[in-house]
Simulated scan of single mutants.
Amino acid sequence: MSDTTTPRRTVLLEEIRRTGGQWGRVRAARFNEAQGFGGNRDTARQDLRALVRRGALVQITTDGRCAYTAATAGGDR
């Protein structure tokens, strides 16, 4: 799994920052599909995890479910 910035990840991150809230793989996959990138949930999960590794998102786990939200400061390195 690569941490390379892709246009899909860039657009996804911009939307997460714009709308706020918590994002899971289903929401991310639906957004990606609406943008013409395809709606694969595994790809969305990989993108969200890659954005966490970059410091752009924070992972939140509640009751065994993962969600992601925009990092506050110092992210997107």
Results as ranks from 00 to 15, higher is better:
19 T>C: 14
50 A>S: 12
54 R>I: 03
34 A>M: 03
70 A>K: 14
22 Q>L: 08
74 G>E: 00
2 S>N: 12
25 R>N: 05
45 R>T: 13
76 D>Q: 13
20 G>L: 04
15 E>F: 07
18 R>F: 10
68 Y>K: 10
68 Y>D: 03
76 D>C: 02
53 R>V: 02
68 Y>H: 01
26 V>K: 14
36 G>T: 04
73 A>F: 01
19 T>A: 13
65 R>D: 07
24 G>R: 12
38 G>M: 07
56 A>C: 13
72 T>V: 12
6 T>D: 11
10 T>E: 14
60 I>W: 05
26 V>H: 09
69 T>P: 00
33 E>D: 14
25 R>D: 11
67 A>D: 08
59 Q>W: 07
56 A>P: 13
21 G>L: 02
44 A>S: 08
46 Q>L: 14
16 I>F: 00
15 E>A: 15
14 E>F: 05
60 I>A: 05
37 F>E: 02
20 G>C: 06
8 R>S: 07
10 T>G: 11
59 Q>A: 15
16 I>K: 06
24 G>T: 09
6 T>G: 15
20 G>V: 04
66 C>R: 10
34 A>D: 14
5 T>M: 15
66 C>E: 05
24 G>W: 12
20 G>P: 06
17 R>V: 08
42 D>M: 13
27 R>M: 07
33 E>I: 03
43 T>S: 07
72 T>Q: 15
61 T>W: 03
29 A>P: 11
16 I>W: 01
65 R>G: 02
13 L>S: 00
22 Q>F: 09
18 R>E: 05
17 R>M: 06
76 D>G: 11
44 A>Y: 09
59 Q>R: 11
3 D>L: 15
11 V>P: 02
9 R>W: 10
30 R>V: 04
73 A>S: 05
27 R>Q: 10
22 Q>H: 09
8 R>I: 00
70 A>S: 13
39 G>S: 01
60 I>L: 11
30 R>Q: 14
38 G>F: 04
36 G>R: 05
6 T>K: 10
17 R>Y: 07
75 G>V: 03
30 R>E: 09
43 T>L: 10
54 R>G: 02
2 S>T: 11
74 G>C: 00
11 V>R: 09
63 D>G: 08
61 T>H: 04
76 D>P: 06
49 R>N: 13
20 G>W: 04
10 T>N: 07
17 R>S: 04
60 I>T: 10
34 A>K: 08
73 A>N: 04
69 T>L: 01
39 G>C: 00
63 D>S: 13
14 E>W: 04
34 A>W: 00
41 R>H: 06
21 G>N: 11
46 Q>Y: 12
72 T>G: 12
26 V>I: 12
38 G>T: 01
56 A>I: 10
23 W>N: 02
20 G>S: 05
64 G>E: 13
3 D>H: 14
56 A>T: 15
70 A>D: 08
57 L>Q: 09
18 R>I: 05
15 E>Q: 14
42 D>K: 14
19 T>L: 13
49 R>Q: 15
43 T>D: 05
72 T>D: 14
56 A>R: 08
51 L>A: 00
75 G>F: 05
19 T>S: 10
39 G>D: 01
12 L>A: 01
23 W>T: 02
59 Q>T: 09
25 R>F: 01
38 G>H: 00
15 E>R: 15
69 T>I: 01
36 G>Q: 05
40 N>Y: 08
37 F>P: 11
66 C>N: 07
74 G>Q: 00
